[in-house]
Design a protein around this nucleic acid. Sequence first.
DNA 1: AATTGTATGTTGAAATTTCAACAAAAGGTC
DNA 2: GACCTTTTGTTGAAATTTCAACATACAATT
Lengths: 229, 229
Amino acid sequence: MLKFQQKVVFMEKYLETLKMCPLFYGIGDEDLLRMLTCLGAKTETFDKKYTVVAEGNSARHIGIMLSGSVSVTQMDYDGNRSIVGNVVPPEVFMEAFACAEVRKVPLSVVANEESEIMFIDCSHILHTCHNNCGFHQQLIFNLMKNLAAKNIELHRKAEITSKRTTREKLMAYLNMCAKKSGSRVFEIPFDRQELADYLQVERSGLSAEISKLRREGILQSERNRFELL
Amino acid sequence: MLKFQQKVVFMEKYLETLKMCPLFYGIGDEDLLRMLTCLGAKTETFDKKYTVVAEGNSARHIGIMLSGSVSVTQMDYDGNRSIVGNVVPPEVFMEAFACAEVRKVPLSVVANEESEIMFIDCSHILHTCHNNCGFHQQLIFNLMKNLAAKNIELHRKAEITSKRTTREKLMAYLNMCAKKSGSRVFEIPFDRQELADYLQVERSGLSAEISKLRREGILQSERNRFELL
DNA sequence: AATTGTATGTTGAAATTTCAACAAAAGGTC
DNA sequence: GACCTTTTGTTGAAATTTCAACATACAATT
């Protein structure tokens, strides 16, 4: 009993985050908490740099970011890292593999900082439970919307990395960030090496290009803070 | 009345294709035909090279390939074409934009050859009709699965284009094709320029690389037929 | 404050890609 | 078959990226 109480208290700590999660759109507080229990949601904490999901792991679970942030990365057979993206609360990750009922994930997820993550076995979402929670329908609908949105995000990333030069990729990325943040001043979630792995270019060449753009008066930057002029 | 009859006859012409479509998995013949009418499915024919969907068009409809094939492409502000993928029967396209309820599509779709395509207004799928067709649930579920599969496909494409050299991209692509076809001999759905635009490299450099691989005895090829040795 | 480690910037040489221009081969049309 | 168009292959020069190596700045730890 105490255990249940603790669980609820814990979930309530992140209730605001969970309510913002696209997966739970349109579901009230009470129902949400009940539903999470019904779905067998489990929360885990990961230290910085820890592997949340390793390539080849089972792809049964959907991850929901509660705090911190993680990077989704792909590793080449000869060690080249490619960063697919960055996930922050209240976003969801691994949902595509879970929904497609792929056995093993072909990528890995690493915590960028101390992070709390909720996991839900996707089969509990897909195969409506017999308690007949009225919200399963809504949940599936939300999951679908989220998959569609991820799809579009992948298209957007492809648009950036399809550029041929480091400069074009960088500018396409920075313009996208500016647009997203709604300001010409913004921070990016990557350090130089990570940005290079995201844009699929060389770190040194990327640094050189940033310096060049600065000299040309196109942008200002220091560390991960950028301003487009 | 005659019109209705014609429609049914037409649909029956492609019944086999439609039954294979991931969107209609688990739905019987009779139900499928009734459902298509209920969903207001419309079929159009496009000549080779014709634009099926232009960038900026409304993104309300899902396309289902009945015959022929189309290419999904993105155009750069300075005219660089990037090919996202190729769609053949009985696959579906544009579903991500329709499901995410994006207003305008950010890419265009062109017929590679004479093609027949069925369109369904996605809102008819998402917002269950009041006739209460028993299969709406199944349809939504199928759509979700399909979105997840597309997601994974986009990941796979990113894995290919994330390679740094023309040779690596090409080999990654050919290996994927070989795996998909289950044979070391296979045809690709692209001519050289299209393959270059898909892999995001120069056509001339791609041709040169293919010749080189041939000289090195790694593959054989003529036109779009390849054999990995 | 000194030390250590990590992140970023810089540079020049080597490798690769892009670009432009043309040659050769294949396909379609009359 | 002759002609025209499109596709594919080839080539060398210019541009760009990668790579390796080092310099500098910054952060954390003792």
